[in-house]
């Protein structure tokens, strides 16, 4: 059996047992998705690349104690997410993008500008405007397709917290993406949290 045919858990076990190429095979299999998570979480390609490198080194070192209580992909993504969150923590002084709160309701200019863009670009832009903890939950649940329970384990937070973060984030996205634009929007719904404050 070649390494390509082996499952993720087998590759990780082979790496721990001394196969020098198993870890590379495993990473190459999943690095595109890991990159997507890192980039969407950090929003900066350079930061995402650094975080992904950190994560690979950590995963390489931690492989021996992987207990197979979750999927390898979940384990890898947890390491990637935590590497990203850690980078955010270490640059907390850096200015973060906040949901505009001045005026009443979402600024029409922002909504119109976003609505004019390509849908995907608009969604990515709107995602960028979410607080980090909401964005991370939505990335994992609504984009990557993890269940609430998996995301809860992945982020080490309660399932209710995951649901709450997703709910708050979707509410913001609904406004930012213009899905509520035909309705009267007299008041903002943004919470007081800002990107990077809460994890």
């Amino acid at each position: 059996m070649t390494s390509v045919e082996r499952g993720d858990a087998d590759l990780l076990r082979a790496h721990a047992d001394g196969d020098p190429y198993a870890f590379e095979t495993l990473v190459r299999r999943h690095r595109e998705r890991m990159w997507a998570v890192a980039l969407r979480t950090l929003r900066d390609p350079d930061e995402a690349a650094d975080a992904l490198q950190d994560a690979l080194i950590s995963a390489y070192r931690a492989a021996g104690s992987f207990r197979a209580e979750s999927a390898v992909t979940t384990w890898l993504h947890r390491i990637v997410v935590n590497a990203c969150l850690d980078r955010v923590r270490r640059r907390q002084a850096r200015p973060t993008v906040m949901l505009p709160e001045e005026g009443r309701g979402e600024p029409a200019e922002a909504r119109d500008r976003i609505a004019e863009r390509d849908t995907a670009m608009a969604v990515e832009t709107a995602l960028d405007m979410l607080p980090l903890e909401q964005r991370t939950a939505i990335i994992l649940v609504d984009i990557e397709g993890y269940s609430v329970a998996e995301t809860s384990a992945l982020l080490s937070v309660a399932e209710g917290t995951v649901k709450s973060r997703c709910a708050r984030g979707r509410a913001r996205l609904a406004i930012l993406l213009g899905h509520l634009r035909n309705l009267d929007l007299p008041a903002p719904v943004a919470s007081s949290s800002s990107a990077g404050e809460e994890v």
Binding site: S65, F66, R67, E69, S70, W75, R78
Partner: peptide, 9 residues
Amino acid sequence: GAYEVGLPT
């Protein structure tokens, strides 16, 4: 146990 690292538990 070579590394006591946080794993998804």
